[in-house]
Design a binder for these strands. Structure first.
Length: 270
DNA sequence: AATACGCCCTGCTGGC
DNA sequence: TGCCAGCAGGGCGTAT
């Protein structure tokens, strides 16, 4: 489920229920998700107050005075705040009990997500090599242009590289390239500065818009079924291979790029 | 350094 | 109807 807009939506939904609250207990029903859950989560976190819920890339950070719990939702993870006596469902792997009598519950069928720990003042290795936030001023067309010189990988692969820019997953990469009129297989190093400017603007526009759409799911956030689907009707290319381009009517094409399905318009994208 | 690819895991869909 | 291959919104680790 989660790309950056959904992680940000999760953060916004969580914050009012979690910020300022104290963690009264941790229940791990599995010792590991993608990686083993480090002992600090059980040892250091209980008793701490969560001062802030932050997002970096697709990671959520629960900040306390001694360190931050670091969560990634992978491809199938979700977080909900629930009454402590809410019956468990399959794949409810972790509960953080809060002093409000509620629990922050982490569910993740595929277990591609993780729960890690970052001591105060340190940056976890996984966060160290990440590129800029796409909605920050550090990310713009000139940045993409500079970084892409000499790169022979397809521009879509380049855009999805978390060391280049974070948070752009398979859906939004496809959508942004369509909006910018750039063919996803084009060599990253051969895209002009002007076109990278359009691409950066497209990334910002689409992610920003999707976050506002995610906002509409906020009110359901606590409800048992928080399945969003907020963006689906508005997709231009993702998942629409063979269907007509909404702009020109040509059949959209499917290519596999970097082992990911990639749909694009052979007429509108060059 | 950049690139290519296998792989972690479960659940669902579509074709037979 | 049942079965199973293929695929899914991510991204790390390793080899080249």
């Amino acid at each position: 489920m989660p790309e950056l807009p959904e992680v940000e939506t999760t953060r916004r939904g969580l914050a009012p229920h979690v910020e300022g609250r104290r963690v009264t207990g941790v229940v791990l029903r599995r010792p590991d998700l993608r990686w083993p859950i480090p002992p600090q989560v059980s040892n250091a976190l209980p008793g701490q107050r969560i001062d802030a819920v932050r997002r970096r890339a697709k990671y959520l950070l629960l900040d306390t005075a001694v360190g931050s719990a670091l969560l990634h939702l992978g491809m199938s993870g979700s977080l909900r705040v629930l009454p402590a006596d809410t019956p468990l469902r399959a794949h409810d792997h972790v509960d953080l009990a809060l002093d409000t009598g509620r629990v922050l519950r982490f569910n993740d069928p595929r277990r591609f997500g993780c729960l890690l720990w970052q001591p105060v003042g340190e940056t976890h290795e996984l966060l160290a090599g990440l590129g800029p936030e796409p909605l920050s001023d550090a990310f713009d067309g000139d940045y993409l242009y500079r970084l892409s010189r000499g790169r022979r990988a397809p521009v879509k692969t380049f855009l999805m590289d978390q060391a280049v820019v974070v948070g752009v997953g398979n859906i939004y990469a496809a959508e942004a390239l369509f909006m910018a009129g750039i063919a996803p297989l084009r060599e990253a190093g051969k895209v002009s500065r002007e076109r990278y400017r359009r691409l950066a603007e497209a990334v910002k526009a689409i992610l920003g818009y999707a976050i506002t759409r995610g906002g509409t799911t906020l009110r359901d956030f606590i409800s048992p079924d928080g399945a969003p689907g907020y963006f689906e009707q508005e997709l231009s290319v993702y998942g629409r291979d063979g269907e007509p381009c909404r702009a020109c009517g040509r059949a959209l094409r499917l290519s596999t790029i970097g082992q990911r399905a990639s749909v694009w318009c052979p007429a509108c994208q060059r």
